[in-house]
Design a protein around this nucleic acid. Structure first.
Lengths: 223, 223
DNA sequence: TATAATACAAGTATAAGACAGGTCGGCCCT
DNA sequence: AGGGCCGACCTGTCTTATACTTGTATTATA
């Protein structure tokens, strides 16, 4: 519990208004909360966790005691398609397709495209053992750290190949996430596609700051 | 913040007029700005603009010159289901179901739940003419501004009713967004469900700050 | 013509106080 | 020993006063 507003006001020699403004800023940030007639208290850790950044899927699996595994489907160095070339600005790229499993249950099919100049440092077993993030950072292959990303999430009907993989009917709903990851200089470093079966997964997005609409943010119409 | 005009005037031994002229030149150049009764402050770098929030779907439609319209499907005050009661902490709630159209093409079916205490201020035509955000804020029905939201995005197969609405086959993929909106005190104010046909829509999410994984952030497994 | 000096209007943040309503603990009465 | 009441203390909210700010106008001066 915090001292009362009156105490804080006299200790720090500011008015109660000022004390309240400060406390309300802290409340906005989720650090403290108040109850009328009782007082101010620091928010218990569980709430902060709820309001904090969302953990990655790997951390979630680890918490659940589930063993994650990756399986490489295929990998090739090839000329980049028009779309990829435009995003990454590279002519020759490495494309790796993997499946992510949780306790041997496939929950994602992933395709990653990276400039082929980075590919020569990796082997097939690297792709199974490590995430690309770890591969790129641990081996210090990047001049600048990864720092921004843009992802689009859409709903698609699952393809025949993926249907077999996830053991669901062809055409079932799936989440598809296309992601471009940038380094701190703003240059795109890698492009990736994730396909998740709809019955297994969902995205959670927390929006802080001022809300100017109750409609889902980030939505856009595609043509 | 800059020192006040009076301070600058005495420190540099020039008149307030001269100080103001200098500051106004700087304002023209976009380096500083002022607020009456408050003072002068240096303008934050345009970085904020680049990382700015994504526009709402309404703003996008307006930019595209598309005319948005809402149609109310039904509206009733009823006892809240267990799920809604847990989220909103209300026994009696108003449920409004609407369709959003862009140039008469339906692109979203929306259900909004709000405490019935707020419902008495609204009429059916209000729901067609305004967004709930505008209704709640314009009429000053909220003690605290809306400030936080949590939304989960999942892929579902489209229901029979929605299939008719969107003129797509039953079972087509759709994006479903469940959203809880909170006021600045952290209290939940409204709960909403959005269903978007998959072929029309996608979510765009920009992630700033340090990236610690290249996997889609915000993803979680559902049970 | 530009600057200085001055005055005033309007806006902002804080100080100080009062009051309503909620919470809690202790005291009294049964 | 137990239930109910009361008072001290707390937050939530309002009003009023004050000091300081920018915005604007006027007049004097080099």
């Amino acid at each position: 519990m915090l001292p009362s507003e009156a105490v804080l006001s006299s200790v720090y020699e500011v008015s109660r208004i000022t004390v309240r403004k400060a406390l309300e800023v802290l409340r906005e940030e989720g650090h403290v909360d108040s109850r009328q007639g009782f007082g101010w208290l620091v928010v218990s850790p569980p709430l902060r966790q709820r309001l904090g950044r969302f953990s990655t899927i790997e951390e979630q699996l680890a918490e659940m005691g589930v063993h994650p595994r990756r399986k490489v489907l295929d990998s090739e160095v090839c000329e980049s398609s028009a779309e990829i070339a435009q995003v990454l600005g590279q002519k020759e790229i490495l494309r790796v397709r993997r499946v992510n499993l949780a306790d041997e249950l496939p929950f994602a099919r992933v395709t990653v495209w990276i400039p082929s100049s980075l590919a020569k440092h990796f082997s097939l077993s690297d792709y199974e053992e490590s995430s690309f993030y770890d591969l790129l950072t641990d081996r210090k292959l990047l001049k600048k750290p990864l720092s921004k990303a843009m992802q689009t999430i859409s709903a698609i009907a699952i393809s025949e190949e993926d249907a077999k993989l996830f053991s669901v009917p062809v055409g079932s709903p799936a989440l598809r996430c296309l992601r471009t990851t940038f380094d701190s200089a703003g240059d795109p470093v890698l492009f990736s596609e994730y396909v998740f079966p709809g019955h297994l997964t969902e995205f959670v997005i927390e929006l802080a700051g001022e809300v100017t609409s109750i409609a889902p943010s980030g939505l856009r119409l595609v043509d």
